[in-house]
């Protein structure tokens, strides 16, 4: 489950914030995570606008914010994600 927030800014760009909460408890003493977010892609109307790859250095509960230009209210944004252990998901956002 991804939590998100999207907001149209005064310069007409849209800032999208994504947060990937996990139910795991982190003590900070783990040396290196077994599971981490591996791949993320963002599509606007089916067109790839951002692709990201991650290593184990990403936070255990990843957070991202990106800004998109040339959008209109009601545009459809699709976010595809995958972990290094094969879990994946899709989130659809209607832009403000």
């Amino acid at each position: 489950m991804i939590e998100y927030r999207s907001k149209r800014r005064s310069d007409d760009s849209v800032e999208v914030r994504l947060f990937f909460p996990t139910n795991e408890t982190w003590t900070g003493k783990e040396t290196w995570p077994k599971r981490h977010l591996d791949h993320l892609s963002v599509h606007l109307h089916g067109v790839l606008i951002l692709e990201a790859g991650f290593g184990p250095g990403i936070a255990p509960e990843p957070f991202f914010a990106l800004r998109i230009d040339d959008t209109r209210p009601g545009d459809r944004l699709e976010i595809h994600w995958r972990t290094n252990q094969g879990q994946s998901g899709v989130l659809e956002i209607i832009l403000p």
């Binding site: 963002v42 951002l50 040339d70």
Partner: peptide, 11 residues
Amino acid sequence: RTRPYIRTHLR
């Protein structure tokens, strides 16, 4: 279409 602006959290 994406601005060169990224915010994230690192471990």
